[in-house]
Computed example of a mutant assay.
Amino acid sequence: MTAADPEASGLRKDAERNRRRIIQAARELCVTRGLEATLNEVAHHANLGVGTVYRRFPTKEALFEAIFLDGIDQLVTLAEAALEAEDSWEGFAWFVWSMCELTATDRGLREIAFSKAYCGGRVDLGRTQLEPRISKLVERAKRDGYLRPEVSSTDMPLCGLMTGAVSEYSGDVSADLWRRYVSILLEGMRCRPAQERLAVDALTQVELHTAMDQWSPASNG
């Protein structure tokens, strides 16, 4: 078959469809189970043969990298959409709500986005895409007087982790409880007259990266 052969093109399209099905199935499983799902379980969930999954992703780590890049793409898209908002506070608050909804309801994304236990270098690559956009959202809202001056872009991953912890703790009792704490977080970040400075400074980028290096989700134990 030549590169222009319709059959070859069809095989490539089938392979890409299967790849997307595998990633989607893995993300669906990881929403509730985190990164404990096996490749065999992913194959079953995707209604594909185990061999098909292993040809595309020979190890769980390879699949995690694909999930991570898929998740980072989501977050980057959210940040870019937030930057399009004319009102910098509305854009910032919408991003925080959207990010926290993802991290509160998708355990796998939370574990893979905020830790370097999986995907190592891919996390660094993702940070270079996401961090400048989040920094712009934060600085724009501070410039316009909406955000208190101590708020940092490095606070955003911690906000995602906190809402995720709320979901893990109380999800079976109140699935939407995380929304209460996003509201509290946003109220605490707003700039108001005569505010006292926050008691502790935000992490620097270096400190945040060190924390990500050291934190290991429970499902990695």
Score class of each variant (00 low, 15 high):
residue 209 H to F: 14
residue 182 V to E: 12
residue 213 D to K: 00
residue 21 R to C: 02
residue 195 Q to G: 06
residue 152 S to C: 06
residue 119 C to Y: 07
residue 54 Y to N: 11
residue 131 E to A: 13
residue 85 A to W: 13
residue 75 L to W: 10
residue 216 S to M: 15
residue 129 Q to P: 02
residue 72 I to N: 10
residue 169 Y to W: 12
residue 133 R to K: 13
residue 7 E to N: 09
residue 61 E to F: 09
residue 6 P to D: 04
residue 196 E to H: 12
residue 63 L to E: 08
residue 154 T to Q: 09
residue 168 E to N: 09
residue 135 S to E: 05
residue 104 A to I: 06
residue 138 V to D: 06
residue 86 E to M: 10
residue 203 L to R: 06
residue 67 I to G: 04
residue 91 G to L: 01
residue 161 L to R: 06
residue 220 N to K: 13
residue 43 A to T: 01
residue 139 E to A: 07
residue 154 T to H: 03
residue 126 G to V: 03
residue 19 R to Q: 01
residue 204 T to A: 00
residue 196 E to T: 13
residue 168 E to I: 12
residue 179 R to K: 15
residue 110 R to C: 05
residue 26 A to N: 01
residue 60 K to P: 04
residue 166 V to L: 14
residue 104 A to R: 04
residue 194 A to L: 08
residue 130 L to C: 02
residue 103 T to W: 11
residue 124 D to M: 08
residue 212 M to L: 08
residue 136 K to S: 11
residue 201 D to V: 07
residue 211 A to T: 06
residue 149 P to Y: 02
residue 212 M to Q: 03
residue 118 Y to C: 04
residue 176 D to H: 10
residue 146 Y to I: 02
residue 140 R to I: 11
residue 92 F to W: 07
residue 126 G to T: 05
residue 122 R to K: 14
residue 183 S to F: 12
residue 87 D to Y: 02
residue 136 K to T: 10
residue 174 S to R: 15
residue 15 A to S: 11
residue 173 V to L: 05
residue 22 I to W: 00
residue 93 A to N: 06
residue 172 D to M: 08
residue 194 A to D: 15
residue 161 L to Q: 05
residue 39 L to N: 00
residue 166 V to R: 01
residue 60 K to W: 11
residue 58 P to C: 03
residue 203 L to C: 04
residue 220 N to S: 15
residue 51 G to C: 03
residue 220 N to I: 13
residue 221 G to M: 01
residue 110 R to S: 15
residue 58 P to Q: 08
residue 12 R to A: 13
residue 69 L to M: 09
residue 16 E to S: 09
residue 161 L to N: 03
residue 37 A to H: 10
residue 83 L to N: 12
residue 57 F to Y: 10
residue 221 G to P: 08
residue 9 S to I: 15
residue 55 R to Q: 03
residue 15 A to V: 04
residue 10 G to Y: 01
residue 150 E to L: 06
residue 220 N to V: 15
residue 148 R to I: 05
residue 83 L to C: 07
residue 187 E to M: 08
residue 39 L to Y: 02
residue 80 E to G: 10
residue 193 P to K: 09
residue 75 L to A: 10
residue 43 A to Y: 07
residue 90 E to S: 12
residue 98 S to M: 14
residue 76 V to I: 06
residue 24 Q to D: 15
residue 22 I to H: 01
